[in-house]
């Protein structure tokens, strides 16, 4: 029987192919933050309610706090570190800056990634569709209006 103590996983991380060995019970958030030193992914509620730990897996938002690292095998993962290209912020990041759509900033990586996923699939969402999609990303500074304005500026 094969050694099941660790699993080899191959995936694309922010555009770059990677192969790593992970424990089958390792959570994606710990793998990203601790093994790959990608600290932009934030742990907050830890029960997939708040969205701070959002990463994109094959383009869809995922709570990395409640996902196995083993499950990104064969998939494409994008973290907040992967959005800027050659030092230039992505359009979503730039819109958040331009609209000052952050206060403490802790929810911002998840907000930006969820917005990126929304606009990838629905480039012209209505305000109601934006609110619905981002309902699961919580800003405890309650700075939602600026965030909404930033997203609307991209539509």
């Amino acid at each position: 029987m094969a050694d099941l103590a660790s699993l080899d996983i191959s995936f694309t991380l922010n555009g770059a192919p990677q192969t790593h060995s992970v424990a089958p019970f390792a959570l994606l958030i710990d793998f990203l933050r601790d093994d790959l030193a990608l600290k932009g992914t934030k742990r907050s509620c830890d029960v997939q309610v708040c969205g701070a730990c959002t990463v994109l897996v094959d383009g869809l938002p995922v709570s990395s706090c409640t996902s196995l690292a083993a499950d990104i095998d064969g998939k494409s993962v994008v973290t907040i570190e992967g959005l800027a290209e050659h030092g230039k912020l992505s359009p979503v990041q730039q819109a958040f800056v331009d609209h000052a759509a952050m206060q403490c900033g802790f929810c911002t990586p998840g907000m930006v990634l969820a917005t990126t996923a929304l606009l990838e699939r629905h480039p012209h969402p209505t305000e109601q569709e934006i609110r619905h999609y981002l309902r699961g990303n919580i800003c405890r500074c309650t700075g939602y209006i600026k965030i909404l304005e930033a997203v609307k500026s991209l539509v």
């Binding site: 997939q48 938002p61 995922v62 709570s63 969820a114 996923a117 619905h132 999609y133 699961g136």
Partner: peptide, 12 residues
């Protein structure tokens, strides 16, 4: 289905 949990719960 569109109102279950949040977008991350619906996606997984």
């Amino acid at each position: 289905s569109d109102n279950v949990g949040n977008i991350r719960v619906r996606a997984s």
